[in-house]
């Protein structure tokens, strides 16, 4: 869980950096060029297959863990539900990672269907920059982000991603055995800052689009 998680954490940063191209006031040129680069560069392509594998692995491992852990708990629940965590920890989030992950997975399906699949199927309109033809991915993005329903869906999903990361970031270090009286507080701080950055960063894009173009 932790290794695939850490990989996905790195991916999210790259993804966010790329998506920020959307905010250029250039009718989507920067973004479309970036999308083209991402889908044609052989190195990136290899990495992207790794990414798909890791996402699947992370999800499958997660579900397996979830079901094993539920079985370990047994059928009978406590009559009074109390969940106390160690100092500075968020036990409620930690105990709901399975649910959060599942929501994220559903989001991913929608997300991929909406943008990634359409590009792969070649049904997107094209646009030409300096004589090079590229898919105009910007168009469906803009379309989605001016629909209030989708904006809310994205913002809520990003909140879930943020919460998932809030625990996931530092948890992956703990699982890898990297717990140290001196450095762990720093890791926790970075983890929290990162979660906020990623969640807010991604959520801002649809919001800005909506405010700008709707």
């Amino acid at each position: 869980m932790s290794l695939t998680g850490l990989f996905l954490i790195v991916f999210l940063l790259v993804h966010l950096a790329g998506n920020l191209q959307l905010l250029h006031h250039d009718g989507g040129e920067a973004f479309n060029r970036y999308a083209k680069f991402m889908t044609t560069n052989p190195l990136i392509k290899t990495v992207s297959y790794l990414l798909y594998t890791f996402i699947l692995m992370h999800a499958i491992q997660g579900w397996m863990l979830w079901s094993k852990n539920r079985a370990a708990r047994g059928n009978q629940r406590y009559a009074v539900h109390v969940l106390r965590g160690a100092e500075g920890q968020s036990p409620k989030v930690a105990s709901r990672m399975g649910w959060l992950g599942t929501i994220i997975f559903i989001f991913l399906l929608v997300h991929l269907y909406q943008f990634w699949l359409q590009m792969k199927m070649g049904v997107l309109p094209t646009v030409e920059y300096d004589g090079v033809t590229v898919n105009n991915l910007y168009l469906p993005v803009k379309e989605a982000y001016t629909d209030l329903g989708f904006v809310i869906f994205y913002v809520v999903s990003m909140y879930v991603v943020g919460v998932h990361l809030w625990h996931g970031f530092q948890s992956s270090f703990q699982t890898l055995g990297l717990n140290h009286r001196k450095y762990t507080p720093a890791i926790r701080f970075i983890g929290k800052a990162y979660s906020i950055l990623v969640a807010v960063g991604f959520a801002l894009i649809p919001i800005i689009f909506y405010l700008r173009y709707a």
Partner: peptide, 28 residues
Amino acid sequence: FGNCSNVTACEAECPKGISIENIARMNR
């Protein structure tokens, strides 16, 4: 027994206050 997902309830409820640092050490 189940797997650890770093909920940390164990440390909070441990009557001897055993730290989850130990879990990290075991993972290592």
